[in-house]
Nucleic acid binder design. Sequence first.
DNA 1: GCCAACGTTGGC
DNA 2: GCCAACGTTGGC
Length: 153
Amino acid sequence: MRYWLMKSEPDEVSIDDALQQKVVAWVGVRNYQARNFMRDAMQVGDGVLFYHSSCAEPGIAGLAEVASTAYPDPTQFDAKSKYFDPKSKQEEPRWILVDVRATKKTRLINLAELRDTPELAEMQILKRGNRLSITPISPDEWQTILSLAGLKR
DNA sequence: GCCAACGTTGGC
DNA sequence: GCCAACGTTGGC
């Protein structure tokens, strides 16, 4: 069991949107490192921190879990999609995703609060210049964030 | 809208 | 394979 932080723009898919749907196919990742996490390392049941990015209030907004094994991102083949990739071939898909099931909305834990928490100093999302939309979270960090969210016994 | 940081592209 | 130019991300 591993833990991940996955960024989503709430204008696209917010935690509320995700909770309303059964599962969200995590379309649109076009970065190889993030793709490789989904393709090579994620397993069904892994814990996910649902992060709101590029919005008025960036921060952790909820919890989710990995809900499928990896499969090709259909939007790469859809010429009408903004995620269309003309260089990707059906026989050899370039972009791979997983389904994510939102499980709980939390209070918004913003960046200032994350930065103020010493146990979270190593989180990649807090490092300068980090833009990766999917990053691994350690078990300790996961527990710390559950505490911040008020979800620990 | 700004801009730093980073990834990708493509000419050589 | 180098690296400058360009595009994108994302907090502020």
